[in-house]
């Protein structure tokens, strides 16, 4: 455990010692702020229109604003997270520091978990920074906090899944650009796979929506924590980490 934390700490330190952390957190916050502004304006306009039409029922801020906004952010994660994970292994292999890790008294699992936790911590920081926007809503409005919390849990799971995927792909190559592009493409496929629609037939649709990373997020955004979806994300992550451990191990054999 101490070893895993040592690696996670080093990963996080590396992120902040290079521009990566600032760029990623900054971009995420910027995009989040932009969406926040868009949805807030739209929401305010609609509220006023409803009031002008004489409807006394207040507009639901959760349904009308927070849910679609966080839904957008789940897609932004898809664009940004490959940049977080692409260097994780590729860079170590290229610069020879992987040799340091593999000859240190560490197990492959400790290395893989450490790197995963390092990237996940940075993603958590990204989420935390973005949540400041949402906190503003609590200041002036009265959103349902449970639904916000489950949405964030969902975002956390989506991000963790993309990170597990990205780390695995990074472990396959020495070239971080290649790792980034492939991660992005695969993550994109896992997202758009649910767009096949009715043409795939009933079974096809079921399989496809079972695979789609974004589809499983839907219930979270409604305020529902369904075990089915939690299991999906956890197994996605576990499978990604398992593949990474195997890939690191095979690095030893291939040399």
């Amino acid at each position: 455990m101490a070893n895993t934390l040592a690696i996670a700490g080093k990963e996080l330190r590396s992120y902040f010692a290079s521009p990566i952390a600032y760029v990623v957190i900054g971009l995420y916050a910027l995009l989040f702020g932009y969406f926040f502004l868009l949805f807030l304006t739209a929401f305010a306009e609609q509220s006023m229109r409803m009031a002008a039409m004489g409807m006394n029922q207040p507009v639901n801020v959760n349904q009308m604003m927070i849910r679609p906004m966080l839904g957008n952010m789940s897609v932004i994660g898809l664009f940004i997270l490959p940049m977080l994970t692409m260097r994780a292994y590729a860079e170590e292999k290229r610069s020879g520091t992987f040799e340091l890790l593999l000859t240190a008294p560490l197990t492959d699992l400790q290395i893989v978990l450490g790197k995963f936790l390092g990237s996940l911590s940075l993603y958590t920081i990204m989420l935390a920074v973005s949540s400041l926007n949402v906190l503003l809503l609590f200041w002036w409005g009265n959103p349902e906090w449970r639904q916000v919390a489950t949405s964030y849990l969902g975002l956390f799971f989506i991000g963790a899944s993309f990170i597990a995927l990205g780390l695995f792909i990074s472990s396959l190559t020495k070239n971080q650009i290649v790792a980034g592009i492939i991660t992005f493409a695969v993550a994109l496929i896992l997202w758009v796979i649910s767009w096949v629609g009715d043409s795939a037939g009933e079974l096809g649709r079921a399989i496809v929506s079972g695979l789609s990373v974004i589809e499983h997020y839907d219930d979270f955004s409604k305020g529902v924590v369904d075990t089915k979806h939690v299991v999906y994300y956890l197994s996605f992550i576990a499978f990604g980490l398992f593949l990474t451990v195997k890939s690191v191990d095979s690095e030893r054999w291939r040399g």
Partner: peptide, 21 residues
């Protein structure tokens, strides 16, 4: 090739090495 992390200082790097060893 010495396995160094370019973004870490020498002290940070060695402290990390001490932790993992």
């Amino acid at each position: 090739t010495p396995p160094l992390y370019p973004e870490l200082t020498v002290r940070e790097y060695l402290t990390f090495c001490a932790r993992i060893t």
